[in-house]
Design a binder for these strands. Structure first.
Length: 318
DNA sequence: TATCCGTGGAA
DNA sequence: TTTCCAAGGAT
């Protein structure tokens, strides 16, 4: 959960997740849709699928985790960082997990000026030597977490508190007066704008028509409102409505209720939200792969879809 | 190696 | 308001 996600954002999800799945075998035997529902809103949904697969892999080994970096790397969703973190913190292996904090501390300590992400490998090569000291090697868990805390609390991205830093006198970045500018990053490409359309169809009972998205791609495996693919060009109303969910003898009166703006990592999405009410969903919609949820149920949606539903609700559709 | 993959808080 | 970026991994 903590991969690219702040502790503050993770905390409530972690509590709910552990309450639902107290141990690795409980997670392993849970249905995937339950796992995804508890992850909804946290983002990077491949992590949820990987974690579920990881739990099943561990369960298949008798519920015993590998206790080496090499063994941990075999598990889905566990890369170099997480393998080292578990090895050091859970099993006392003398390795250094290199996360964003450690990357920043290292680039400053050695005044490494080559820009990320190309310099990532070189920075990591220096970082893994930080525990060369015998006392550091003797306490892998404490050393790893001390490094994280140094980065999170003192060697911060902006305005680092060098005056408080225990490594100030050894820091080449500080000596050169460039610590705060490190690590350098390659200029980011401009974020393009893309366009989508989603349909919010509600029945008299307050039911909502949702579809499960494909496993691959954006919001993979999550529930969402139906709609055509997202593309570079806007969707004219006539074209959008020609793609609305339909069934024999069902002609909902669609109304554009608003536009939702959502910023993903690599593009901005503008979604036109159309909404309509019908008496009841025909069986053919369920047969087509659509799902009918009660409106008052705890429907777990990714944030984008949540925004779309809220726009429809604000417009008085339900 | 570069790109894809979410979201929200802080500055 | 915009920008940055957070206990990264898979392809």
């Amino acid at each position: 959960m903590l991969q690219q996600t702040t502790v503050t954002a993770v905390m409530p999800y972690f509590e709910r997740f552990l309450a639902a799945f107290p141990d690795v075998t409980a997670l392993a035997r849970a249905p995937q849709d339950r796992v995804m529902a508890l992850w909804a809103g946290l983002g990077y949904y491949a992590r949820a699928r990987n974690l579920h697969a990881c739990a099943q892999a561990v369960a298949a080994r008798g519920g015993v985790f590998p206790d080496t970096v090499e063994g941990l790397l075999e598990l889905p969703g566990i890369g170099a960082y997480t393998a080292a973190a578990i090895a050091a913190i859970a099993f006392g292996r003398p390795v250094v997990p290199v996360d964003g904090n450690v990357e920043r501390v290292t680039s400053r300590l050695f005044a490494l000026t080559d820009p990320l992400p190309a310099a990532r490998k070189a920075i990591a090569a220096r970082a893994v030597t930080l525990n060369a000291d015998a006392q550091a090697k003797a306490r892998p868990s404490d050393f790893a977490q001390a490094l994280f805390d140094l980065g999170a609390g003192i060697c911060t991205p902006r305005s680092p508190a060098c005056v408080l830093c225990p490594w100030r006198e050894a820091c080449a970045g500080h000596a050169q007066g460039i610590a705060a500018t490190l690590p350098r990053r390659a200029p980011k490409p401009v974020r393009p704008v893309r366009h989508g359309v989603h349909f919010c169809l509600v029945d008299e009972a307050g039911g909502l028509l949702l579809v499960r998205r494909p496993e691959k791609g954006l919001l993979g495996g999550m529930m969402g409102l139906p709609g055509p693919h997202w593309r570079d060009d806007p969707w004219p109303e006539a074209e959008a409505l020609s793609l609305a969910p339909a069934a024999p003898r069902l002609q909902p009166h669609w109304r554009m209720v608003g536009q939702v703006k959502h910023v993903f990592t690599h593009f901005t999405l503008l979604v036109d939200v159309y909404a309509a009410r019908i008496a009841a969903f025909p069986n053919s919609m369920a047969a087509a792969g659509c799902v009918h949820y009660p409106g008052d149920a705890a429907v777990a949606l990714p944030s984008l879809m949540d925004k779309c539903v809220k726009v429809a609700r604000k417009a008085g559709i339900f």
